[in-house]
């Protein structure tokens, strides 16, 4: 019969097999999704997509204004959110130890991190859009910055905490003031990790649709100012995909392919760059 040894080996084998199957299960969806994007989107990718503005239904056009709008808002959102996040994360990891404020901030940041992005959209709608009286690219960028902030705070703190205290102590023992220790030693040691956090944040906001629905809204025409409603790729894709017009649906798939592969490319590029720069420890 089953002695203990056989039973343990069986349990081991069974669980490990399930683990392998889980991995295959996970990767299966990725392959299917990417395949779908390529098959549905690739036939409609052409130069017009990159150079022409969004068309009315039934005529030819592209996504140029949406792409530019997305780039502007993503850049601005990252630009606002990242420095705030890094400094706040630094406080949590370096200055806040033992303080009463740090645990509260950490708790709140975790909530903000998981706060549904659509709630952030509603918040910005009430605070910015209503008071400005109109939808605008700034409102969209601010909503995106609110998504960047907690991501960067969290990863910065996590990464700074991974830096061994002995490094800090060694620098302090040489007479370096704390700001110098943090900037020259701790940041440098954690640079790769912090950068990964920022990249993750950028990747996340590049495809965010929900917070833009009622902040940046959309714009069928060229707009190069963040002061008015601005076209952006995710919302255009949403509108076009849900529309009954074939042309629009094709553009939606082309946009989906474009946005996804740009994000994937950025992700992979960042990892390659990080890998070559990171010392091998």
């Amino acid at each position: 019969m089953f002695d203990l040894y056989t039973r343990r080996r069986f349990i081991n084998g069974f669980n490990l097999t399930v683990s392998v199957l889980a991995t295959i299960f996970g990767l299966f969806w990725l392959v299917w999704l990417l395949w779908t994007l390529v098959r549905q989107g690739l036939p409609w990718i052409n130069l017009d997509v990159l150079t022409q503005p969004t068309p009315p239904p039934g005529s030819a056009g592209g996504l140029a204004n949406a792409i530019v709008g997305s780039l502007m808002m993503t850049a601005m959102g990252t630009f606002i959110g990242t420095p705030m996040g890094i400094l706040a994360g630094t406080y949590l990891s370096e200055f806040g130890r033992g303080s009463k404020m740090a645990p509260v901030v950490r708790f709140v940041n975790d909530i903000l991190l998981s706060a549904p992005s659509i709630i952030l959209g509603v918040f910005i709608y009430e605070v910015v859009v209503v008071s400005m009286g109109h939808f605008s690219g700034w409102a969209g960028a601010l909503a995106l910055a609110l998504i960047v902030l907690p991501v960067v705070v969290r990863t910065t703190e996590d990464m700074l905490r991974l830096v061994p205290d002995t490094l800090r102590e060694a620098a302090a023992a040489l007479g370096a003031p704390q700001w110098k220790v943090i900037i020259m030693i701790v940041y440098r040691a954690a640079r790769a990790g912090i950068l990964t956090g920022v990249m993750l944040a950028v990747a996340r906001i590049s495809g965010e649709t929900a917070p833009l629905l009622f902040t940046a809204l959309n714009n069928q025409f060229w707009s190069s100012t963040l002061n008015e409603p601005i076209a952006n790729l995710p919302v255009v894709i949403f509108q076009f995909a849900m529309s009954p017009y074939d042309d629009w649906q094709h553009l939606a798939w082309a946009g989906a392919l474009l946005i996804t592969f740009s994000i994937l490319f950025l992700n992979i590029l960042a990892r390659v760059l990080l890998r070559t720069r990171k010392p091998s420890y």
Partner: peptide, 14 residues
């Protein structure tokens, strides 16, 4: 990690 990078709207369309 790439699975996480794919935007929500793409999951929706798919």
């Amino acid at each position: 990690e790439l699975l996480a990078a794919i935007p929500s709207i793409i999951y929706g369309m798919w």
